[in-house]
Design a protein around this nucleic acid. Structure first.
Lengths: 158, 158
DNA sequence: TATTAATAGTCAAAAATAGTCAAACAACTA
DNA sequence: TAGTTGTTTGACTATTTTTGACTATTAATA
């Protein structure tokens, strides 16, 4: 089942760079429970595989899958994410950002923004907690630098 | 429905810098209850998104939506910093970042980095505390965008 | 000035979505 | 066969939108 739904979505994505579905409709179409769709998405449309997923609940809700282009810096970023681990202090975090800047993976402005976010004074004051929060933030930022969304179309809403 | 009404109003605002409507008329036009219009306005035309709303009740009442105009980048950043105040929730913070991106004050990558840092899941879980931390971080980031450092000289400290 | 009509605003309940998580099940593997 | 891994299911949760009863404000009229 998972494979069938995956194939269906990929077929659409082969022609368009994004799909938007209504979870319940797809579930009905394939005669499965709605949460099966989440399973398919969580296992087959991950960022590692080059997909970005957005969704909205409530009336007019949807799930949107976007094919993204994975960048060359991916390996570098992945290994940095590994190195960071689940906790990092401000000094080390700054070094990571500096290195990214030196390696021209991020611009100066981007580096400044990231450094601001690494600043101790912004956090709670509990060292252990802060180091975890910081690691979370830094790793998520790096993860977001790994890919690039397709070009925006002219008649973009949002 | 909300999206449709939003699109309608934005279309008008694309040509004029303000719209004035009669709530009941628009509700009738789109066949929805009048309070739906308030919902659209409250969720889609906030100050964080760059709109001002004025209204009057009673005979000849109206709702007026005005697109705020700012002169330049510095102005925009300053007014956003003002709007943020000392506390901001995730939704509003996202609106601010989005607006800066739309107005080409920040790049898409910068926007992504900033959005990551606004994410609720990153914080402590205490709403009031989180909103303060988020405001601090966002305002500091914006403040850092206001100026550009001079070119690095050889004997650069920092 | 007091009353009524004509507006718009608020708020909370209901409806319409999607997400999470763990238990049951299935398919493989040592 | 026992253990491991991947899949399916459904009960429960979270979020967003829609709706309508009630309130507030302003203008028109008596």
């Amino acid at each position: 089942m998972t494979d069938i739904i995956e194939a269906y979505l990929k077929k659409v994505l082969h022609q368009q760079e994004q799909v938007e579905i209504r979870r319940s409709e797809i579930a009905q179409l394939f005669d499965c429970v709605p949460s099966q769709i989440n399973y398919v998405i969580n296992t087959r449309f991950t960022i590692q595989k080059g997909y970005l997923v957005e969704s909205k609940r409530g009336g007019g809700g949807y799930i949107r899958i976007i094919k993204v282009q994975v960048l060359d810096e991916m390996d570098m970023l992945n290994s940095m994410i590994d190195i960071i681990g689940d906790s990092i202090n401000e000094t080390d975090a700054r070094s990571v950002v500096h290195k990214l800047y030196e390696d021209e993976i991020i611009s100066k402005r981007e580096a400044k923004l990231m450094l601001v976010a690494m600043d101790k004074s912004l956090y709670t004051g509990e060292r252990l907690i802060d180091n975890r929060l910081r690691s979370n933030l830094l790793r998520t930022m790096l993860a977001n630098l790994k890919y690039e969304e397709p070009n925006k179309r002219k008649a973009d809403n949002s």
